[in-house]
Amino acid sequence: MFRKTIILIFLFVINNLFAQTEETTKSSSAEELAKQLANPVAALISVPFQNNFDFNVGPLDGFRYNLNVQPVIPISINEKWNMISRTIIPIITQSDVTEKGNNETGLGDIAQSIYFSPKEAKNGLVWGVGPVLLLPTATDDVLGLNKWAAGPNALLLKIKGQWTYGGLVNHMWSYAGNGNTDINATFFQPFLTYASKSGASITISSENTQSWDNDIFGGFIGAYYNKVTSFGKQMVQIGAGPKVYYGNNPFNPTWGIRANIILLFPK
């Protein structure tokens, strides 16, 4: 009942957002914003609210809802370089995951990425490098790893007409904390986006994590439809799509739904 209530409330909100859309956005600006959103190091301030509904989680077929608040803030360092701050703040509620009948809600571990990226894209190639940090901010032991971790972070993508494709990768090692499991893990995310001139876009993306110390691999592939539009003076992108999981992680869900609401602050 709890999970059904969350889903129905969210779908009601999404439906009303679409119904109230004001078609005042210029096609050219909507297209440009859709392309920038496909680029993780674009010089665009955005605040995504990424809603993840995951079903059949783990051996008990539990349910998990994960809201990731992900502010992206570009900072101009000089005429040639930007520094992009990308923070992921997870707010999690789950049921029947740790034990049948158990419910946990709270903040998860915050991930902080920094990219240093050239302002000029040569031949449509965009890249960025920097550190990634994991902060043990979970309010419940089962919602985080209770470890400090850090490592290198990089991305490479190509912009060609309406298409943007590439990937990002990072690796983290734990160096402090009281958690029982050390972190030695690689994350890899390839993606492909087609952005239309109307501001609509379709993205196919796969997110994968390999834990090397215990040989556990988990990932999913998702396909998402998104649309840049405006509500009054506020530019937003809204969209959703399904996710299908794979790998040998025992706590993988079977499938899920991702729905995004992204506040945009173009210069």
Rank of each mutant, 00 (worst) to 15 (best):
residue 250 P to A: 02
residue 57 V to R: 04
residue 237 Q to P: 07
residue 41 V to K: 00
residue 68 N to C: 07
residue 152 P to Y: 07
residue 52 N to A: 00
residue 115 Y to D: 04
residue 130 G to L: 05
residue 162 Q to D: 07
residue 145 L to I: 13
residue 253 P to N: 05
residue 100 K to N: 07
residue 172 M to N: 02
residue 107 L to A: 08
residue 9 I to Q: 08
residue 204 I to N: 08
residue 59 P to R: 05
residue 65 Y to P: 12
residue 119 K to N: 08
residue 61 D to V: 15
residue 137 T to A: 09
residue 180 N to E: 12
residue 117 S to Q: 05
residue 260 N to G: 03
residue 39 N to Y: 08
residue 253 P to R: 03
residue 257 I to Q: 03
residue 38 A to I: 06
residue 15 N to G: 10
residue 201 S to C: 05
residue 146 N to R: 14
residue 245 Y to F: 15
residue 259 A to T: 06
residue 235 M to A: 13
residue 17 L to T: 01
residue 197 K to Q: 13
residue 227 K to S: 02
residue 13 V to Y: 11
residue 120 E to W: 03
residue 105 T to N: 08
residue 226 N to E: 10
residue 74 P to R: 09
residue 80 K to P: 05
residue 98 T to Y: 00
residue 162 Q to A: 09
residue 144 G to I: 13
residue 141 D to K: 15
residue 88 I to N: 14
residue 146 N to E: 14
residue 116 F to V: 15
residue 33 L to C: 03
residue 232 G to D: 08
residue 253 P to F: 02
residue 168 L to N: 11
residue 262 I to D: 10
residue 233 K to C: 01
residue 136 P to E: 12
residue 92 I to F: 00
residue 62 G to D: 02
residue 261 I to P: 06
residue 267 K to F: 00
residue 30 A to M: 09
residue 159 I to V: 11
residue 146 N to C: 13
residue 230 S to H: 02
residue 31 E to S: 12
residue 190 P to G: 06
residue 110 I to H: 06
residue 32 E to T: 08
residue 265 F to T: 14
residue 181 T to A: 03
residue 135 L to R: 07
residue 133 L to N: 02
residue 101 G to K: 07
residue 34 A to C: 10
residue 256 G to M: 11
residue 101 G to I: 10
